[in-house]
Amino acid sequence: MTAWVALLVAAGAGLGAGLRFVAALHLDRSWPHGTLMVNVVGSGVAGAAVALLDDPGGADRAAAFLVVGLAGGLTTLSGLAGQVHDLGWRRGTAYGATTLALATATCAAAYLLLG
């Protein structure tokens, strides 16, 4: 049922966004440790879930909750872009590159190790 999938996406994304907000509130300083952490963890969750689930496209309820919802809501690209912009050229580039490298490596490692 599409309604179930929609509900699970919303629940996962709400939970992910809440966790991201708490992490950012308590851990983000001039260097956004909290946002960096949730972006990396969320990308790892997505990689692991896609490796373990049969139909990761989103029709599957577990995928709707974990991949589209939780991992999608836990990670943010708009927040990342805003922080990169505000940190300026040098620190912003370092922060952006660190996030992309760690998030992709974690996602790929989780997928390849579990898949």
Partner: peptide, 8 residues
């Protein structure tokens, strides 16, 4: 916007 956009 945080929930709309995604890095994962």
């Amino acid at each position: 916007l945080g929930g709309f956009t995604t890095l994962s």
